[in-house]
């Protein structure tokens, strides 16, 4: 009997301790117990503009849903500026988690490792770091698939033969992967890539380059610009030349204007492939789930790049996003 009472007592005291700590947690929660820092590139072109938009939106949504989480979004205009921002963040605050879309892989690897040494949970988005053991969570789109899925669709629609031109972006890993994914699939068909040139993910340069392609090649069956921003310039050049030989003009990334065209059933641009800037929001949510709920998140998450068609376009369309 005595033994039992002691047991009951121990149980009771344990329960009290638990209740006290729960109350403690609740009291803490009001002044945000967990800090998640988000470091992303500044809005210098359409896609990064979308990243900033989705990051800020996710910040508001998460802070409203989980009062114990504070999200801080900082933007940086260069790799150096991003390193400085990381130093400032970790010097002034106790970070529970860092969600980072690194400007460049190599330059940011050391500084992020530094932040991790303080016990911060690291989520890397889009561009991986040079050392994959640093991140706890990795969220990215599939650049190879962006190129490969578009190419597979094109091979199918052109019946495995034809002549196409390609516009590529800024010399980076992202651009290389898309081009590789695309040309590997094309190489297995009889489609001939007439030329590939850089247009730096810039509408104006894409317009100019497409004008030159049109002047040089009397017959072009299809165009692939590896980004929807460039596609808009390409379409303008084709319209001006009044060329009827171009059956398909495709982009990638899922830009708002292009998804509108897909929705409207445009014949020349019937599809796009997503490399959505909203991946930053997916990453922030996954990171927050570590702290807000009992949903541990570790590992690598590769967002698929399925074709955006008129049937599923509304899932990739965000009316008030700038991109």
């Amino acid at each position: 009997m005595i033994k039992i009472t002691t047991r009951v007592r121990t149980f009771m005291s344990a329960a009290t301790v638990a209740t006290v700590s729960l109350v403690g947690a609740a009291a803490h929660a009001q002044d945000a117990e967990f800090t998640i820092a988000v470091s992303i590139p500044a809005a210098t072109h359409g896609w990064t503009g979308g990243v900033v938009y989705h990051a800020q939106r996710a910040e508001k949504e998460i802070e409203a849903a989980f009062p114990n989480i504070d999200v801080i979004v900082t933007t940086a205009s260069s790799a150096t500026a991003q390193v400085s921002a990381l130093e400032d963040l970790s010097a002034t605050r106790d970070l529970d988690a860092l969600v980072i879309l690194p400007f460049t892989s190599d330059e940011l690897t050391g500084p992020v490792e530094q932040v991790k040494s303080n016990g911060t949970f690291i989520t890397v988005v889009d561009r991986g770091l040079a050392d994959p053991t640093i991140h706890d969570l990795y969220v990215a789109g599939d650049n190879i698939a962006v190129g490969a899925n578009t190419a597979a669709w094109l091979v199918d629609k052109l019946g495995g033969k034809g002549e196409i031109v390609v516009l590529r972006g800024i010399p980076t890993v992202i651009d290389d992967e898309r081009i590789k994914g695309f040309s590997d699939v094309i190489a297995e068909s009889d489609i001939k890539i007439l030329d590939v040139q850089y247009a730096n993910w810039n509408q104006d340069e894409a317009f100019t380059l497409m004008q030159d392609y049109l002047a040089r090649f009397p017959n072009i069956d299809a165009v692939w610009a590896n980004d929807d921003d460039m596609l808009l310039g390409v379409l303008e050049a084709i319209d001006q030349a009044e060329r009827k030989d171009i059956r398909f003009a495709l982009g990638g990334n899922g830009m708002k204007q292009v998804i509108e065209m897909v929705m409207a059933g445009d014949e020349r641009t019937p599809i796009s492939t997503p490399y959505p800037p909203s991946m930053i929001a997916s990453a922030i949510y996954m990171t927050a789930s570590q702290f807000a709920g009992q949903a541990p998140m570790r590992g690598s998450f590769k967002l698929a790049a399925p074709l955006i068609t008129p049937e599923n376009a509304d899932q990739f369309y965000f009316a008030d996003s700038p991109f």
Binding site: A43, T44, G46, G49, V52, Y53, Q203, K256, P322
Partner: peptide, 10 residues
């Protein structure tokens, strides 16, 4: 960039 929210201003 501010006027266009980093996107485009058509």
């Amino acid at each position: 960039i501010f006027l266009s929210d980093g996107g485009s201003l058509p």
